[in-house]
C-alpha cells in the first residue's frame, strides 16, 4: 500500500501535474486562467468543508459565510484601511480561526439536523451583516481595487500566472494537511466521531473538543480561500458570502468525494468546468445540475474519487485474496469499505 506505484499515488501525481501544467497548455487564455485561479481559491475552502463534513460528519452550512469573512477582511483592509495584502490575509486567517472556534462552542452543542440549521442561520446572519452594513462594507456596491499580494524580488503577483501559482501553493498545502490528518490518529479520531459519537466517547475521545477544532480548522481554510479570492477578483460583492456559495461548495465536494484527499480539488474543477460549459444557459444550469446532485447523493454518495478508490481497492483485494487464500469466497462489500477507510486519497 505504500509502494511507489500505487494507483492512488499515480492519481495524486497526475492531478498535481495537471494543475501545474494547466496555465502552460492554455497559452494566453487569460479568461481560462482566471477561472482556474478562482476555482483554486474555492477548492481551498472546499478542503475546509471536507474536514468538518467529510471527516467529522457535521454538515456546516455557514461555510460560505466564513469564506465571505475572509473575502471582506482582505477586501476592506487593503482598500479602505490601506493595509498591505499579507498582513490582511493573516488577519483574515486568524479572524476565521478564532471566529470558527468561538462559534463552534455554541454551534456544536447542537446535533445533526439542528447543527445544519444552526450553521445555516449563522451563515445568513454573516451574509446579512455584509450585505446591509453600508457604512463599513459598502453593502451592494461592494469593494473594488483589492490589492494584489506584494511580491518578493522578481515575483510579481499582478501577473495572473504568478497569482495562479501562489494560490496553487496554498491549495497543495490544504491537500497535504488533509492527507496528513487522514493518515494520522487525528483522522482516526474524526472518523470515529463521524461513525459513532457514543463509541468514540467510550474509547476516550474528547468528542466536543475535537469537533470544535475540526470546525475551527474548516472555517480557517474557508477564510484563507476567501482572502485569496478577494485578491484574485479585485472586486468583491456580498454574493461572495452567500448561502448559494455554501451550496455550490457542497456540490463540489459531493461530486469529488467526501472525506477523500483528492475529492475537493477534483470536484471543484470538474463542476466549475461544467458551469462554464453550461454558461450560455446561465441560471438554467441547475435544471441539469440540481437533478445531478440528487442522483449523486442517492446512487453515488462516495463521489468520483471515492469510487476510484473503491475500484482500486477491489482489484487489489481480489489479487491479495487470490494469492493468499484462494478458497475463500470474495466479499465485495468488504473490499469497498477497506479502501474507504484505509487509503482513500
Amino acid at each position: 500500500m505504500t509502494t511507489t506505484f500505487s494507483p492512488q499515488r499515480i492519481g495524486t501525481v497526475l492531478v498535481a501535474l495537471a494543475l501545474l501544467a494547466a496555465p502552460l497548455t492554455l497559452g494566453g487564455e487569460e479568461y481560462v486562467l482566471r477561472v482556474l485561479t478562482v476555482g483554486a481559491t474555492y477548492a481551498i475552502a472546499v478542503y475546509g468543508m471536507n474536514l468538518i463534513l467529510g471527516l467529522t460528519g457535521q454538515l456546516s452550512l455557514a461555510h460560505g459565510g466564513f469564506f465571505g469573512i475572509g473575502v471582506y477582511v482582505v477586501g476592506l483592509l487593503t482598500t479602505d484601511y490601506h493595509w498591505a495584502f499579507w498582513p490582511s490575509l493573516a488577519v483574515a486567517v486568524v479572524a476565521t480561526a478564532v471566529g470558527g472556534y468561538v462559534a463552534g462552542v455554541v454551534a456544536l452543542r447542537t446535533h445533526e439536523e439542528y447543527f445544519a440549521i444552526f450553521t445555516m442561520a449563522m451563515g445568513f446572519i454573516i451574509f446579512l451583516v455584509i450585505s446591509r452594513w453600508e457604512s463599513v462594507t459598502h453593502a451592494h456596491s461592494g469593494v473594488s481595487g483589492v490589492k494584489f499580494p506584494e511580491g518578493f524580488g522578481a515575483v510579481d503577483f499582478s501577473e495572473p500566472i504568478v497569482m495562479y501559482y501562489l494560490v496553487l501553493v496554498f491549495l497543495l498545502g490544504a491537500a497535504y494537511v488533509t492527507y496528513a490528518v487522514r493518515r494520522s490518529g487525528i483522522g482516526r479520531t474524526l472518523v470515529a466521531i463521524r461513525t459513532s459519537e457514543d463509541l468514540a466517547r467510550s474509547i476516550g475521545v474528547n468528542v466536543g473538543l475535537n469537533k470544535q477544532l475540526a470546525f475551527a480548522a474548516s472555517t480557517t481554510l474557508a477564510g484563507l480561500g476567501g482572502g485569496l479570492f478577494a485578491a484574485v477578483q479585485g472586486f468583491v460583492g456580498p454574493s461572495a458570502a452567500g448561502i448559494d456559495l455554501t451550496f455550490e461548495m457542497l456540490m463540489f465536494i459531493l461530486v469529488g468525494g467526501l472525506g477523500t484527499v483528492l475529492g475537493p480539488v477534483v470536484g471543484t474543477f470538474l463542476v466549475l468546468f461544467l458551469f462554464e460549459f453550461f454558461q450560455d444557459f446561465e441560471a438554467y444550469r441547475f435544471l441539469v445540475l440540481g437533478p445531478i446532485i440528487v442522483v449523486l447523493v442517492i446512487f453515488a454518495p462516495r463521489g468520483i474519487v471515492g469510487y476510484l478508490n473503491q475500484f482500486v481497492g477491489r482489484v487489489r483485494s481480489r489479487r491479495a485474496n487470490g494469492s493468499r487464500n484462494p478458497g475463500r469466497p470474495h466479499d465485495d462489500r468488504k473490499a469497498e469499505s477497506t479502501t474507504d477507510v484505509k487509503e482513500a486519497l
Binding site: 445544519a116 440540481g290 440528487v294
Partner: peptide, 14 residues
Amino acid sequence: HTHHMIAAVGAMFF
C-alpha cells in the same frame, strides 16, 4: 441526515 439535506438542496436548485 446529511444526505437528506444535500438532496433537498439539489431539489431546491432545480
